[in-house]
């Protein structure tokens, strides 16, 4: 008979209580990104066809629809990147310290990228 407590036997074997949140948000961001990326590709082509001038970009991004869609794209995209890279690291990086380091870099990197892109979008949208 084992002298382990029941708690010790099940610890690290059960649910981590966060898998469904990860799964669900990966799907929600995917769903958002389908129309948003198609809109973005079409918008880039529209800008290119117009000569891709600075004024054209400013005109486009200072409209409320383009600015809001761009901010949604940035948010959904960077969260999607964070969730996707996290799974890849969890699958392939076995060393605990390296895994932790990668996960921190990914999370903070996506946060920095998103904040920078959001700042730039707002600056262009409201910049004179």
């Amino acid at each position: 008979m084992s002298i382990q407590t029941p708690l010790a036997r099940v610890r690290y074997l059960g649910s981590a209580k966060e898998g469904s949140h990860h799964w669900w948000w990966q799907r929600l961001t995917s769903l958002m990104l389908v129309p948003l990326t198609l809109w973005f590709v079409a918008s880039v082509w529209w800008l290119v066809i117009g000569g891709a001038t600075y004024e054209a970009l400013q005109d486009w991004l200072s409209g409320p629809i383009a600015a809001i869609l761009m901010l949604l794209l940035i948010g959904a995209m960077f969260y999607h990147v964070k969730l996707g890279l996290q799974v890849i690291v969890e699958d392939y990086v076995h060393h605990k310290g390296a895994k932790w380091t990668f996960l921190v870099i990914i999370t903070l990197g996506c946060l920095v990228g998103a904040v920078a892109a959001i700042y730039a979008t707002i600056a262009v949208a409201f910049g004179g």
């Binding site: 600075y54 970009l57 400013q58 991004l61 940035i74 995209m77 960077f78 990147v81 890279l85 990228g113 920078a116 892109a117 700042y119 730039a120 979008t121 600056a123 262009v124 910049g127």
Partner: peptide
């Protein structure tokens, strides 16, 4: 992801 990095740089350069 390299494309998202370029998107950031593109927007920042415009800003």
């Amino acid at each position: 992801i390299s494309g998202t990095a370029l998107l950031c740089l593109w927007l920042l350069s415009a800003a």
